[in-house]
Design a protein around this nucleic acid. Structure first.
Lengths: 188, 188
DNA sequence: GGTTCCATGTAAGGTGTTACATGATTCA
DNA sequence: TGAATCATGTAACACCTTACATGGAACC
């Protein structure tokens, strides 16, 4: 099973979506954009080759025979794939990785020539957090009516996908709140 | 100045550190690991070629002549480099990008065979947040005695680097708090 | 049957990591 | 002078993005 070690989280995520329901690559892209895109983005140029790779490993297979080179193709996960997915879920994870150019600018902006520059950087940061928050809220809105944090007992009843999205929404809202507080009175 | 557009935030960060003080590549690596590594990591394999690139553009220059192929070399930013850095600080930023395998697992863990599996994923998440928090706190400890959020008027007196680190600390602490709350009573 | 959007696929390049190699430096 | 560490450098590869190309499907 050494070949499993070489799969990327992107590949596992693809299998994850197929474990929820058989579907096409395009469907997976749409779902990924609605759900995990904020902490694990998937692009088309990544997805389609990975589908082939996974099929070669026997973890997924096409439903129905291929009809033409660019025709819509649906996929399903195999029993082998399901088992491998379970093993991945229990395996150690790669460390969190963030790339945030805005924070880098904020860090160095004390060296800017204009003294009020940190303010501008904070504003840019605020706008970005606002965007993220709006996106997560809309994703959340389709899943859950209310938006507050669950208590532990409530959390026990929620599925993991809802928990993840709530986590993201809460973190974004907190960051937003903090930025507002530091920037001060101005709106939006 | 179209060549500026092709510089990466990594390159700008290197120039940012050189704008604080002339120093060696190794010094930059150490500083980066103490400060911006959580939102913009820099590896040696990235740093040293970039120093050459920046020198070729005339944005930085070596201090003293090179003494041997692997000898310690200090660098300083040029006037051109300083101006370019200011322009970068005001330019639009690349969108935030996060890669968090733990959250992907949490998202899909509702499909795990064991029903209590989301719990395990949350635990892994908690451990990671704890690690991040500890790191940020130690970085913060060398800069500031107290760890609470600044009020806007206090913030005005702080430099941007302190603000960034406080931001990271607060976000990590909030996430930690949330995870604890959802996971429930168990410790550490 | 032509136009528009859906869906898949590919190629090129950018960005960064890992692992390794090598030369200086320091200190016993 | 030998060993350990500091500091630089490089090569190979992994991963992902972008841009583009192309073929189906649907709708008029």
């Amino acid at each position: 099973m050494t070949e499993e070690a070489s799969l990327t989280p992107t590949a596992w995520a693809i299998m994850g979506f197929l474990s929820l329901a058989p579907q096409s690559g395009y469907d997976i892209l749409r779902q990924a954009k609605e759900t995990i895109t904020d902490f694990w983005g998937i692009s088309p140029g990544q997805l389609y080759p990975q589908l082939q790779t996974l099929a070669n490993k026997g973890f997924i297979r096409p439903i129905g025979e291929a009809q033409g080179p660019h025709a819509r193709q649906r996929w399903e996960i195999t029993e082998n794939g399901r088992q491998a997915l379970q093993r991945w879920l229990k395996a150690p994870s790669a460390p969190l990785r963030i790339r945030d150019e805005r924070l880098v600018k904020l860090f160095f902006s004390s060296r800017a020539e204009e003294p009020e520059h940190p303010h501008n950087a904070l504003h840019a940061l605020k706008a970005e957090r606002q965007r993220l928050l709006t996106h997560i809220d809309s994703a959340l809105g389709t899943l859950l009516p209310e938006k507050e944090l669950p208590t532990p007992s409530e959390a026990a009843k929620l599925g993991a996908p809802e928990l993840v999205i709530r986590y993201g929404a809460h973190a974004a809202r907190t960051a937003e709140h903090w930025v507002k507080r530091v920037v001060g009175k101005e709106q939006a």
